[in-house]
């Protein structure tokens, strides 16, 4: 009995297949999200790794931005619930979960007794502090997103970015570069900017450690360090941080079957 969780985000598609005993039988991340071939490609790759056919999946739960429009699910569940479920499965000690995705940031407070979401906040109408912000800045700096953390480690000082708006921040970064500021220092400022936006959001919820970070941005060590500094607490990174939403969805699908 296999279950599938598929997390269709704005920037990437993730799929997790759980096997008979709830173990991860296959998982995949494709760097394009809703409205593209990403969901199908992630699904097929996860099926291939699990060594099963689509008909072997007993139940599918979809989550993420594209959950409503994707046709292959038995049920759709919000990404907030799925991330909480996925993180708690791997890290039951988590009390605050921060998910930094392609276009939104979510801070989730977990109920320590019931193991469920107790409260949450999301960014609103603004991409500052999200993966998209970093993508835009990476393009201006002429770097691959994957190299941002590595480059920022060579920073000698932080060049502060004061603009919140992504477009104005882009102009500010260009202005710093044209004045001869070193790329690693400007990048440190960009990471600090993301951390400040995220910390501002999380503070509305209250920071209860342990704090766990999920989402693709969690792979950027520069953002993690800046966020630890802003929140003044250790940040733990969820294993397979991009896949916690899909894992949570697959776990919920499994629970659905056990209730039947």
């Amino acid at each position: 009995m296999h279950t599938l969780g598929i997390d269709i985000g704005s920037a990437s598609s993730k799929a997790v297949i759980l096997g008979d005993n709830g173990e991860v039988a296959g998982q995949a991340v494709v760097p394009v999200g809703t409205g593209t071939t990403g969901p199908e490609r992630a699904l097929h790759e996860a099926l291939r790794l699990a060594g099963i056919a689509p008909g072997d999946v007993a139940r599918t739960v979809a989550t993420g931005y594209g959950r409503v429009t994707w046709q292959g699910a038995d049920r759709q569940v919000s990404e907030i619930t799925c991330h909480a479920r996925g993180v708690l499965h791997r890290m039951p000690e988590a009390r605050t979960i921060i998910d930094i995705g392609g276009q939104d940031v979510k801070a989730i407070e977990v109920d320590p007794d019931r193991g469920f979401v107790r409260n949450f906040v999301m960014n609103d109408k603004c991409a500052a502090g999200t993966g998209r912000f970093l993508e835009v800045m990476a393009r201006v700096l002429g770097l691959e997103v994957e190299r941002l953390a590595e480059v920022s480690e060579t920073s000698a000082r932080t060049v502060s970015i004061s603009s919140i708006c992504t477009v104005f921040a882009e102009s500010e970064v260009i202005s710093h570069l044209s004045r001869g500021e070193p790329v690693p220092d400007v990048l440190a400022g960009i990471h600090q900017s993301v951390a400040k936006r995220v910390a501002g959001l999380v503070s509305r919820l209250g920071v209860r450690p342990p704090v766990v970070l999920t989402g693709g941005v969690a792979k950027n060590r520069g953002v993690v360090l800046a966020l630890e500094k802003e929140l003044r607490t250790e940040i733990r990174i969820a294993p397979s941080c991009q896949l916690t939403g899909a894992l949570g969805a697959a776990l919920i699908a499994r629970e659905d079957l056990s209730k039947k």
Binding site: Y65, V68, S78, I80, T81, V117, N119, M122
Partner: peptide
């Protein structure tokens, strides 16, 4: 309404 959907659905699940 997309972000509102996520918030309302999460709240309903919560």
């Amino acid at each position: 309404l997309e972000q509102a959907r996520t918030r309302l659905q999460s709240f309903a699940e919560m």
